[in-house]
Amino acid sequence: MQGLVCSNISKRYETGKVALNKLSMSVESKGIFALIGRNGAGKTTLIRILATQLSPTSGAASLNGVDIIKDPHGIRERIAIVPQEARATPWLTPHETIFSYLLWRGFDTGEAHERADRAIKRLAIEEYADKSNRFLSGGIKRKVLVATVIASEAELIFLDEPTTGLDPISRNDLWNVLNELKKDRFIFLTTHYLEEAERLADNIGIIENGKLLGIGTLEELRKKVKYPYSIKMLDAGKKAAVRPKSGKVIRGLDGNSQILTSQKEAYAISDQFIKKGIKFSMNPISLDDIFYYLVKKPIENGEEHEEEYW
């Protein structure tokens, strides 16, 4: 079967914690697939299983017909990973980092040097190529790690939370790189930045408590939410002073009321708000809304905050 396919993957650690619970999914092996979920949702466990670093308790997985669980050596020819919390080795330069990784992948020294130079150029880090990694900024170090794996011949690249901890400018730089890279590679990334998934991903999976709650393009995920429009109240503390004919009022991530409803109803409500002088914003639902709708919990504080007004 083509693409990346997971069938009933479960993982129970020795501690008894169930990290994945019969997770199944199928995704085309091109572009960027983003797996989003809260901390501890099971993202890293899944990526480590697919990258052959961890055995599942049960289940099967394959990439373009190659069995990931039973033929780890076969799959390792085709994949590369930047693990979560990976650090650019402090006593190496970026060029040495990429060069040595390519040697580990079995390239001859000549080709490894050429590929390292090309990757450094592609990520525009030439001026740092021969400086020690320990003197580089966090953003450049992260680029060095991404350059390391893209310099390889791997057709599937796993990036586990690649932009965590980066400042907005460095994050944007890396997003540009990934957007360019996805033209010729399949990138599987995990993130808890929903904006990142929205900006980059062709397909998105939402994971919670080791289960996949939804998978598809942003449009396909929007269809999972009954209400395609979102109205956010901008006056802190004010509740929706209207009763939509159809829809749902929830407390948004910022603590303000938020109405999820149909397009027609959204326009009707907005008219009422304008007349009453209530500040609001109206948009098609974002990935944040979808995520919140599916997971039903704010991402950060883990508290239940759902209010149904009718």
């Binding site: 990258a51 050596h73 390792r76 994949i79 919390e85 990784y101 992948r105 390391t148 794996v149």
Partner: peptide, 15 residues
């Protein structure tokens, strides 16, 4: 454990 290089090597053709 600290640099995660071994994880990168495990997921590569090196045995």
């Amino acid at each position: 454990n600290d640099l995660k290089i071994q994880d990168m090597v495990v997921s590569s053709p090196t045995t």
